[in-house]
Design a protein around this nucleic acid. Structure first.
Lengths: 224, 224
DNA sequence: GTTTTCACCGACCGATCGGTCAAGCCCGGC
DNA sequence: GCCGGGCTTGACCGATCGGTCGGTGAAAAC
């Protein structure tokens, strides 16, 4: 399952799919990402593909299935994709590799990624993307394992593991809201910068005594 | 404009609004947050309020206006709300206060916040929430000013200011996706934890020499 | 007492929604 | 020649969409 050569046109893990199906998934993902699931009609998808609406129903049973193929297809391999890019070495470097690999996945399958992380996040009808959610849980648990590993190795201090995982994933999951492929650095570079900030912290090595600065809760770690 | 006593029922800045209008805004915000803008029909809103659909059009001209009142109302005062909660003192503590205040705002106006940060984020028809976007720009620029202040004061190292702002806002903006008011700590406490992680970093004070660990890019700051 | 105002409603509109269906088109095998 | 089957289509369905309309009843204004 480490072979990811079946990915085409930014659509992941659609191995036996025809070109037409891949085209539909690509266009649908782009539309779902920009206008949302409810905001995208079957007519929109058909028009974007230059085909009739009926043909969509020849290849897919309904709208939900198209979304499921887009969303699940984009999260199906995420865990494996990232896992296979974690090198041997210090746990902190594994966390860094985790972030960079996730960013690379985001760059490759951007529209599908956005579509799957945007729509239905709070929909009461969970059945539509239950599988997606369990896969994301596995992905997040994998990260928590790496964090615990780094704590056990003494590389990072004894932080709250779930909260640390949420902080790391927040920096990656929010990226699509401001990332501009024409102006920003590559997602991998951005992930690298974020890792540096989170791991090393923003604080400068030498603490300056500000006039009038009073002791504060967050300054609890003593100056070194 | 620092008087925020006009906020009721989690709906911000709706000063002269009647109870019915406030009810509509509250229900609409909750629905927009959970089902999205396109996924919420005027009938849904009317039903949730226990009124007829016609009455919605008596109080609002159309669906977009309801959303605008929800979204703009929730971001209108955000900047002022946060700004007024920044204490005098070291710039780093201002950043911390910024994060905690934003979290408090999120806790108070949760549904409106989610609705405004979820819908239309990539809609080609930007006119619908242009005002909201410029307000968020001012909010983000305010944070960048605080970061620059902390750099100038020597409290934090010379990081990339826009990227640092994005990291901080990511941790806050993604919170609604996993925050559970029944199980999680308060948003303010969460913001405090995130500030500690970002400011002080995850790395433990003493570096352990792992067998087989090789020098890496992220380990560029020398051990102290 | 009359008129104006205002919150409110049920019925209705054209447009669009997701989805169906019978029928053509195209092309390789016989 | 023609035949079968996958690809493709336009016409069509009931339901629902956002939005409009005329009207009601009660309080406020005169």
């Amino acid at each position: 399952m480490t072979e990811l050569s079946t990915m085409k046109d930014g659509v992941a893990n659609q191995a036996e799919a025809s070109d037409r199906v891949l085209q539909i998934l690509a266009e649908a993902g782009r539309l779902f990402a920009s206008k949302g699931f409810e905001g995208t009609s079957m007519r929109d998808i058909a028009l974007a593909c230059g085909i009739s609406k009926s043909l969509l129903y020849h290849h897919f049973s309904n709208k939900d299935e198209i979304y499921a193929r887009v969303a699940v297809g984009s999260t199906l391999e995420l865990y494996l994709f990232v896992r296979d890019r974690i090198p041997d070495g210090p746990p902190s470097q594994k966390i860094r590799a985790f972030m960079v690999a996730t960013a690379e996945y985001f760059r490759r399958y951007r529209w599908a990624w956005i579509a799957s992380t945007t729509a239905f996040w709070n929909d009461p009808d969970r059945s539509r993307h239950k599988e997606r959610l369990t896969r994301r849980d596995r992905f997040e648990n994998f990260l928590r394992g790496l964090i615990q590993e780094a704590i056990d190795a003494g590389e990072i201090r004894k932080v709250d593991v779930p909260m640390t995982g949420r902080l790391i994933l927040s920096s990656l999951n929010w990226m699509h809201r401001w990332y501009n492929p024409n102006k920003s650095a590559t997602p991998e570079q951005i992930a690298d910068v974020f890792f540096d900030m989170i791991f090393n912290g923003l604080r400068s090595g030498e603490l300056v005594a500000l006039p009038g600065a009073e002791p504060s809760k967050a300054g609890r770690r003593k100056a070194r």
